[in-house]
Simulated assay, not measured.
Amino acid sequence: MDYSKKNTDVFDDERAKKQLQAAFEKEESADTLINGGFQIPQTRKQERKIQTTYTLSPSIKEGIDALAAKQGYRSASAFVDELFEQVLKQAEK
């Protein structure tokens, strides 16, 4: 078997390079706007946190998890922290 010849039907170097480049490119995504112009933030800074417990209905928890994943957060907790930060900033206006 001659390993020096590549079968481009099986493996295409250029296509593989493009796939790798696309996989490792950082996607820039903007904050998401919802009703009333409220912005759901993207991930950003790290700050020391305190542990707090809130009771939510399962559907609300699922919605928070889905929005957090959509916005690129590693955890729903980080997302909720940023979300409430935005709410508090808008309430000050």
Results as ranks from 00 to 15, higher is better:
residue 1 M to G: 15
residue 4 S to A: 12
residue 4 S to D: 08
residue 9 D to R: 13
residue 9 D to F: 03
residue 10 V to N: 12
residue 12 D to N: 14
residue 14 E to F: 10
residue 19 Q to E: 03
residue 23 A to G: 06
residue 25 E to P: 00
residue 25 E to T: 05
residue 26 K to Q: 14
residue 26 K to S: 12
residue 27 E to L: 08
residue 28 E to F: 11
residue 28 E to W: 06
residue 29 S to R: 15
residue 31 D to T: 12
residue 34 I to Y: 01
residue 34 I to L: 05
residue 35 N to G: 06
residue 36 G to I: 04
residue 36 G to S: 10
residue 36 G to Q: 07
residue 38 F to V: 03
residue 38 F to N: 07
residue 38 F to R: 13
residue 39 Q to H: 05
residue 41 P to H: 01
residue 42 Q to M: 04
residue 43 T to F: 07
residue 46 Q to M: 07
residue 50 I to T: 15
residue 55 T to G: 07
residue 55 T to Q: 11
residue 55 T to P: 01
residue 58 P to S: 06
residue 59 S to A: 14
residue 60 I to T: 15
residue 60 I to S: 14
residue 60 I to W: 09
residue 62 E to F: 01
residue 62 E to M: 06
residue 63 G to S: 10
residue 64 I to R: 02
residue 64 I to H: 02
residue 66 A to D: 11
residue 71 Q to G: 07
residue 71 Q to W: 03
residue 73 Y to Q: 00
residue 73 Y to A: 00
residue 73 Y to V: 01
residue 74 R to S: 15
residue 74 R to A: 15
residue 75 S to Y: 06
residue 75 S to F: 01
residue 78 A to M: 06
residue 78 A to F: 01
residue 79 F to G: 00
residue 79 F to I: 00
residue 81 D to Q: 13
residue 82 E to G: 02
residue 83 L to I: 06
residue 85 E to D: 14
residue 87 V to R: 05
residue 87 V to G: 05
residue 88 L to W: 08
residue 88 L to T: 11
residue 88 L to G: 03
residue 89 K to W: 14
residue 93 K to Q: 11
